[in-house]
Design a protein around this nucleic acid. Structure first.
Lengths: 126, 126
DNA sequence: TGTACATCTGAGCAGGTGTTCACATATTGC
DNA sequence: GCAATATGTGAACACCTGCTCAGATGTACA
């Protein structure tokens, strides 16, 4: 029943065995955790998060204005936006020489809201 | 109106100026983006995310079983759980020599759900 | 076309992060 | 008490990540 080789500690063989087996199969079989981690890693940087908050507040901003809003160099802003754009978190629109960025979909706003909710309420009931 | 020193590019002074000023004040004044980034950084690791998914599936697991479920050493599991516990993402319960971990609150499950939703639907309408 | 502006890109480097190793602590049963 | 199991801790290391710098690309206007 899927005894994992190489890890020989935890000698107990109680009733949790089947639950562990089912869990390892489920976690290992689906690639979702890895992709979710990739998404969270992008949001796990203060500069990028501040950019998202700025876009959430302003609706739409060009690179230079966004750079000033978060007080980061325009080059760093461009690098960050590239990552966010590739991941589909933000979308861009060209107007003349400027490129305006905005949040791509509502899921991002929801993630920010839920996170803020978590922080505000601290650790509450399960 | 809060011209940021040290960043002298982007010479345009169009109608967006006030919006930028308001945005920079809002983003800079609130520490929420930084704390949200800290939270997302914790979730931005594949090992930790798989642990959360395992706990989400199994409900409750001791360290050694969780280590086998995500196929990581028990030491690495303990280190990861310490970070998650300090952040209030997981909670623990001692039963004999074993320590059982579970998701701390419903916000984490919601974050995982919304993230999965985002990935499944890709980038849709704003 | 040439100049100025806005954005993008690649290389290089400092700082942060996750893992492993060795050891410490805690709990149970003899 | 002692031995065995389960978990926690700190240091060392390799790896990754985000920033800056220099330069390239794209766009508008004279």
């Amino acid at each position: 029943m899927a005894e994992i080789a190489g890890l020989d500690t935890c000698r107990d063989t109680e009733v949790d065995e089947d639950r562990v087996a089912a869990t390892v199969a489920w976690v290992g079989g689906v690639e979702e955790p890895s992709r979710v981690a990739d998404l969270f890693r992008l949001l796990g940087d203060a500069t990028r998060t501040r950019m998202l908050y700025a876009l959430l507040e302003a609706g739409e901003l060009c690179v230079c204005d966004l750079a000033r809003a978060v007080e980061v160099s325009e080059t760093a802003t461009s690098h960050a936006l590239r990552l966010l754009r590739t991941a589909g978190i933000v979308a861009n629109r060209r107007a003349g020489r400027k490129v305006y960025y905005r949040l791509a979909d509502t899921h991002v706003r929801l993630l920010l809201d839920v996170s803020g909710e978590h922080l505000r309420h601290g650790e509450s009931a399960p």
